[in-house]
Design a protein around this nucleic acid. Structure first.
Lengths: 205, 205
DNA sequence: TTCCATCTAGTACCTCGGTACAATTTTCGC
DNA sequence: GCGAAAATTGTACCGAGGTACTAGATGGAA
């Protein structure tokens, strides 16, 4: 019925909404998932859960998500909204976020939300962070920037855009970094930067 | 300087943005807080953090929050937005949500988002409740082997040798994995497998 | 048995990553 | 100012990565 969801939550229990009302609170549940049935009136059904929703956060699942439906869900008190058939990993993430008191909004809705904005002004004045690390000693500042951007998953074109230089220059920096750190390619570089590998990984394979 | 924040994060470190650029990723930080200075241009400064933002989530703090500013922050890649002087307890909650991959939207912005909606239809058909789980399901066993080997830094040839299959077959598996996980290339795949990135960096769906 | 998912593999093709020659400009200490 | 390191960009080349077709073998479910 809901393979992805079942995959994500082995201990979860499913049932028709009528068989659960009044039952939800008596269980040890800390989160309610509500799957919408498109074509039929929802708001009313969501309202049925309303009393419980004040205590239990609710995530709405839609087989074919739309922005309008998402907004309706949130206005009805939902704490999250996503695709019914989202990957199990994603569903667990949604659960974690919502259980922390956060909201999970669909991507396209977020896009609309963002595109509705104009330009604003303000300036960064301070930032914060914890510890520090070792790998970057031999690298110049610029090379560190490149390495960091690369390690976040960017390809050469994206690095170039992020740093305001040409792709060719990125190649130059990447080449220098690989040489200095004595690694073969960008993947292994990312492992080092992200702390998953030592400078010289040894043999393997 | 930031009493509430300091109260919430004893281990956090603060500094001017200029002294930190390029330094952020090399630290063990997993979250960046950016305090806006009202009246001065922001977007530019946020952009300076952009490369890091792909890996490090950023929460924007504003002394006098507005919806417009919040939207600007989100459009610049911020993962959260709240009052600089919010209670310590709230700040830790924000951190928890954002670290889970969620967004923290100001309440008034949420209200506006909700009030902008009309009525929709759909019906509740089932409800359920949860537990927790790990990463990539929906991969076959073989694909998991390939993904793990790849994520340890191996190229296709090495994966082939390690698994006793041809390079062509490795390509087939890798292609299937990238498709299933909806990622662009092996670097981003390794980030997911190694827990440095969520499947969809933003919200999804 | 039939059907379907999985694992395997081939050829071909195109893009991206990385390197090998450069060269010019910028920055900074002496 | 001078010299050195760093940053920048160019053209060209080649191998690795990734995709688009295809298709045989296997093994379990209906």
């Amino acid at each position: 019925m809901l393979p992805r969801w079942s995959e994500a939550f082995h201990a979860g229990k499913a049932g028709k909404i009528h068989s659960i009302r009044g039952n939800v609170r008596s269980s040890k549940a800390d989160l309610v998932w509500l799957r919408l049935e498109h074509g039929l009136p929802v708001a009313m059904q969501i309202e049925h859960l309303a009393p419980q929703l004040r205590l239990l956060p609710c995530v709405v699942l839609s087989d074919r998500p739309t922005d309008e439906e998402a907004l309706a869900a949130f206005s009805a008190g939902a704490r999250g909204y996503c695709n019914t058939h989202a990957a199990a990993q994603l569903l667990t993430q949604v659960a974690a976020v919502v259980l922390q008191g956060g909201l999970w909004i669909g991507e396209s809705l977020m896009q609309r939300l963002i595109s509705a904005t104009g330009r604003l002004q303000a300036t960064a004045s301070s930032v914060v962070l914890p510890e520090s690390e070792t790998w970057s000693e031999d690298l110049t500042d610029r090379e560190k920037q490149v390495a960091n951007t690369l390690a976040s998953g960017a390809n050469n074109k994206e690095i170039a855009r992020a740093l305001g230089i040409t792709e060719r220059t990125v190649k130059a920096h990447v080449g220098a970094i690989l040489e200095k750190l004595q690694v073969r390619d960008r993947l292994q570089l990312s492992l080092i930067v992200n702390g998953h590998a030592s400078r010289r990984p040894g043999l393997s394979f």
